[in-house]
């Protein structure tokens, strides 16, 4: 695989955005490009992540694209997923070797609608969604499964039942660059040594909710178990999920979990996963770590998980 690194990152989290999507995205895109010393015409590929259901209107990614100023026309794509998967798509595109840079961004105004109910629409539309189980109830189901597994210490038991996350609006942008270009543009690029994502069944009843099998498979393919990360940024809006993830990732006590505060303090839906990658990359770039782990999740009860390993290279 070609060497690809995160060379800059910008995020904006607000309790309640007054901005429209383009106004929300523009500052992070401009800041990320500025930190990389690039202008929009220097970017080879652009990819974004968002969900129409957050604003209740179709095609919300279309208006947000104005923030990039895509003129002359650009090579661009969008995933209806957390921005971490947009970063994955950009990483794949950079492997082709014909371009050296990519811009990735994500945005979400999660506070506009009843997000707890909106997320119920991710479930099976015939068997589960019509019952409208809210997001916290589903997370509680998972916490219960973990509590009943008998694997938890008393202190972890307490941790597993913490408050639901604080929902915020936000946007984030990351610039990726390959090999030598990354070294030229950034004094210490955070190279992606491995990245992989896996999905599980949508049927909650067929999964052992106290384990995250997909995280484990993704971690294996991302080379996580051969590395010793100093930090791990985990996309775990609910505290029980953090315990399940630490377990799946075999993270020992030496690893500092969520030094940024994580998604429990600031859950910007569709953005939080990309922020984890940006935060982990920043720890590498600013020399706090030689290796850091980032994780992103999608779907109820950690249904889909992405692992991205970041490291410094000589």
């Amino acid at each position: 695989m070609r060497d690809v690194a995160v060379i800059s990152f910008s995020q904006l989290l607000v309790d309640k955005a007054e901005a429209n999507d383009a106004e929300l995205v523009m500052p992070v895109v401009r800041e990320a490009l500025g930190r990389a010393g690039l202008q929009k015409q220097d970017i080879g590929f652009t990819c974004s992540g968002s969900s129409d259901f957050l604003t209740g209107m179709p095609f919300s990614f279309v208006g947000a694209l104005d923030a990039v100023g895509p003129w002359p026309p650009i090579e661009e794509s969008h995933v209806e997923m957390d921005g971490a998967w947009a970063l994955y798509e950009a990483w794949v595109r950079l492997q082709h070797g014909d371009i050296d840079t990519a811009l990735v961004y994500a945005f979400g105004r999660s506070t506009l609608g009843p997000i707890e109910d909106i997320l119920a629409l991710q479930l099976d539309p015939y068997y589960e969604a019509p019952m409208w189980p809210d997001a916290t109830s589903l997370a509680a189901l998972q916490a219960r499964a973990l509590l009943d597994s008998g694997r938890l210490s008393d202190s972890d038991k307490k941790k597993a039942t913490a408050e639901p996350p604080k929902i915020v609006d936000g946007a984030a942008a990351v610039v990726l660059a390959s090999g030598d270009r990354a070294r030229k543009l950034c004094s210490r690029p955070a190279f992606i040594s491995g990245i992989d994502h896996r999905i599980e069944s949508h049927l909650l009843g067929v999964r052992d909710l106290s384990h995250s099998v997909s995280t484990e498979i993704a971690a294996k393919h991302a080379g996580c178990f051969e590395k010793s990360p100093t930090f791990a940024e985990l996309h775990a809006p609910y505290s029980a999920q953090e315990l399940i993830l630490c377990d799946a990732l075999k993270l020992d006590k030496q690893v500092t979990i969520n030094p940024s505060g994580g998604a429990q303090n600031n859950n910007a839906v569709m953005v939080a996963g990309l922020i984890r990658i940006g935060e982990a990359a920043t720890r590498v770039s600013n020399r706090e770590a030689d290796c850091a782990l980032a994780h992103a999740s999608s779907g109820p009860c950690l249904q889909q998980n992405l692992i991205c390993m970041l490291e410094a290279r000589a």
């Binding site: 309640k16 955005a17 007054e18 901005a19 429209n20 999507d21 383009a22 106004e23 259901f53 604003t55 209740g56 209107m57 105004r109 506009l112 609608g113 009843p114 109910d117 909106i118 629409l121 539309p125 015939y126 969604a129 019509p130």
Partner: peptide, 19 residues
């Protein structure tokens, strides 16, 4: 066929420019 109506209410800020 079965009906599963969806009703979600949003409060949309116009954004600075539109405002």
């Amino acid at each position: 066929l079965f009906k599963a109506p969806i009703r979600l209410e949003y409060t949309i800020p116009a954004g600075r420019a539109t405002s």
